[in-house]
Amino acid sequence: MHDGVEDISAEIRRPKLDYPFETVPTPGAGDAVEIRPGVLWLRQPLGGPLGFINVWALADGEGWAIVDTGLQTRETAQAWREAFKGALGGKPITRVIVTHLHPDHIGLAGWMTRKFDCRLWMTRLEYIQCRMLVADTGREAPEDGLRFYKAAGWDEESIDNYRHKFGGFGKAIYQLPDSYRRLTDGEVFRIGDHDWRVVTGNGHSPDHACLWCEELGLFISGDQVLPRISSNVSVFPTEPDGDPLTDWLTSLAKLKATVPDTVLVLPAHNDPFHGLHARLDHLMAGHERQLGRLEKSLAEAPKRSIDVFGSLFARPIGPELMGMATGESLAHINCLIGRGRVVAEQDGDGVTWYRAA
């Protein structure tokens, strides 16, 4: 799962990836590492187990195009101020490109676009859904959400925790711009001296944009491909019957068919690496193995979604990971339902039980 949880497919032999910058000091606050001429690697603080997010600056005429921004925090804003004066040489930001809607990627996009009077670039569904989630800030938890987690088997303490935390998404995001420039899958656009192609994926977020520059041999993967951790793929109360895991697996296969194995992958977390196709194969095989274990578990006896954590995750799930783990468990269950391998039945208390078909 993303956000620092151990890779759930770790029992499958991990591919040996090549990290060409592992002997290079990673960038500190305000500093950058040059990946290629005109391509800079910066890191912004996150806190928590991940510690940081990788962001990228691409030379764009007399300024820089920025890919992803970090959270809206005083520490991140100060790190950017130091970068503007230091690694970016006082040049303006020409555009802010955001891979997807999660706060560690879009958090300071509104701040930066206003500061430099430039445009936000992202896919339509990511922009619209982000605005929708930000609009929930300060709302009470909806009845649909309470029913969703009761159906999953949550106890009252866990549901009260959901009530308390609901509406916090927008707190880590600076006010979004009221307009944006839409990115579309397969689109090619120029940044500075080079063409970049948009390659979208689904499952971790609704329409995640990756950027591929064939000439430079670079692939900015965001959270769509990470080398050491597995991105969270979850079902949420807004779409309880969704099948994001099938979307995710389809997207990984699409990336393998579209982007050559020779690229240097620039991920949002961990370090740049070679070995894209091996990592994609590993991620797909890991989820298929989990689906097999889950189906076997549900053949033994009907279970709620919270009862199958042991079949999916390599570590115990505490209260801080309950929502993420439930969402990912349901993603695997709904995938098996879509394949005709599992059926669902709700009891008189509104709790859903799953069994192998």
Rank of each mutant, 00 (worst) to 15 (best):
W64T: 06
W64D: 05
A65N: 10
V67I: 14
G70W: 01
L71C: 11
Q72A: 11
T73K: 07
T73Q: 09
T73L: 11
R74D: 09
R74V: 12
E75K: 15
E75N: 14
E75L: 12
A77D: 04
W80A: 00
W80K: 03
K85M: 14
K85G: 12
G86N: 10
L88N: 06
G89W: 09
G90F: 09
K91H: 12
T94F: 00
R95K: 15
R95G: 02
I97R: 00
H100T: 04
L101C: 06
P103M: 09
H105M: 07
H105S: 09
H105V: 05
H105L: 11
I106S: 01
L108V: 02
L108I: 01
G110Q: 04
G110T: 04
G110F: 04
W111M: 04
M112E: 02
R114K: 10
R114S: 09
K115D: 00
F116A: 07
D117K: 13
C118H: 00
C118L: 06
R119G: 01
R119T: 14
L120A: 02
L120D: 01
M122P: 03
M122W: 01
T123I: 08
R124E: 13
E126W: 07
I128M: 12
I128Q: 12
R131A: 10
D136C: 14
